[in-house]
């Protein structure tokens, strides 16, 4: 194993630890309870290893659909084990699609108005 990729893994782990720590802190504040440093480290480590399992599942799903790019449909399939999670992810996916549709509309609208501006200037 090259030290370079090991270093990369360490950096990714540190980034996961950082976000996990902030999320735990927020939950703790809501319930007026503190999280020990060890439990935050354990949760971060678990999330890091779980992401490895997620990644391998996603890759297999994409491959099964004869794709080389992981799509939102693969993520939906990943969330199949829990009904609530599955519904949540599906809603989130639709939300993202809707957002992007609106963004596109806005951009084309802007472009049009700019076009007409140019025309009127000419």
């Amino acid at each position: 194993m090259s030290t370079e990729s090991e270093e990369m893994q360490q950096r990714l782990k540190a980034a996961v630890h950082f976000t996990a720590g902030r999320l735990c802190q927020k939950v703790g504040e809501e319930h007026r309870r503190s999280f020990s440093r060890q439990v935050i480290a354990a949760i971060a480590e678990t999330a890091f290893r779980q992401s490895d399992i997620f990644a391998r599942d996603l890759e297999a799903f994409a491959r099964h659909a004869k794709r080389s790019t992981v799509s939102p449909d693969d993520v939906k399939l990943l969330a199949r084990r829990s009904t609530a999670l599955s519904i949540y992810i599906q809603n989130k996916s639709e939300e993202l699609n809707q957002e992007q549709k609106n963004l596109k509309k806005k951009n084309t609208g802007k472009r049009k108005s700019r076009d007409t501006e140019d025309e009127s200037r000419e």
Binding site: C24, V27, G28, F54
Partner: peptide
Amino acid sequence: TKIGENAARLMAEMLKIFVQEAA
């Protein structure tokens, strides 16, 4: 193997739920 933009956003959500649920 690559990952799409929306798929990455959804996975960010998945990981967040995982950590929140653990907490």
